[in-house]
Computed example of a mutant assay.
Amino acid sequence: MSDVRQGTRLLIVGPPGSGKGTQAGRIADEYGVPAISTGDIFRANVKNETPLGVQVKAIMDAGDYVPDSLTNELIEDRLGQPDAERGFLLDGYPRTAAQVEYLDSLLASKGESLTAVVQLTADLDEIVERLRKRALDQGRSDDTEEAIRHRQDVYLRETGPLISEYEGRGILVEVDGLGTIDEVASRIDAALAARGIRPTAAA
C-alpha cells in the first residue's frame, strides 16, 4: 500500500485542436479538482499585479518566454492554495524536463505524486482540417495550413520527451481525441476508471 496521500492529481496533454481545454474543464468539474492552466495563472497574476505577475508582464511585453524558474514559482504558489489540497488537473505544465523534475520534487515534498497523465491523441491531417475549417468559419485567413502544421510540429517536439518519461513511469493514459465532446469524455472516463480513478460522485 502506497503512503502517497490520497487525491487525484492529473496532467492533460494534447495537440492544438484536440479539444484539450474543453476536456480539461469537464474533467476538473467531474473529478472535483481545480483545472490549473499556466496561461490562466499568468493572466491572473498579471491582472492582479502580484510581484510575480509584474515580472511575467515585463518578460511577455518584451516578447520573451517566461523562464522555468518563474513558471515553477507560479505553479508552486497555485498548488499551495486550499482548493488544490485534494488534487488538481494541470494543463500546460510541465513543458520541459526541468519542469518535470521540479514538479516531481514539489509533490514528493508533500508525500504526493501524479496519479495519471491523460494524452489526447489525434490524426495530424484530421486536426489540420478541423483547425482550417474553424479558422475559415471565424474569418481568420492568416491561420494557414502551414502555420497550423508548424504549431503541431512544435507541440510534438516539446511534449515528446515528456510523454516518453510518463509512459516509462506507467502513468500515461492514451485517449483518442477525435469525435464529439461527449465521445471523448466517455473514453477519458473509461480509461481513468480502468486505473481505479473515478469521478468524485462515483468514488
Score class of each variant (00 low, 15 high):
G17A: 09
I171G: 02
E112I: 07
N48G: 10
A62S: 15
A193C: 11
A24R: 02
N45H: 15
G111K: 09
S141Y: 02
E30K: 09
D143H: 04
Y102W: 14
V100Y: 01
G19E: 04
T22S: 09
Q152M: 13
Y155T: 00
V56Q: 07
I188C: 12
A201C: 03
E101L: 13
N72D: 14
Q119F: 14
D125P: 01
S2E: 14
G139L: 07
L124S: 11
P67G: 10
L172Q: 07
E30A: 14
R187C: 12
E112P: 03
N72E: 13
D176P: 03
A203R: 14
L106Y: 13
D176R: 13
Y166E: 00
D77L: 15
G80W: 11
G19L: 10
K133V: 08
D29P: 00
D91E: 13
A190L: 11
L11S: 03
V184M: 11
E158W: 00
S141C: 00
R132H: 05
T22Q: 06
D3Y: 12
I171M: 06
A84E: 03
A147R: 12
L11R: 06
I188L: 12
E174M: 09
I188N: 05
V66G: 08
D142P: 00
E73Q: 15
E146G: 02
Y93D: 01
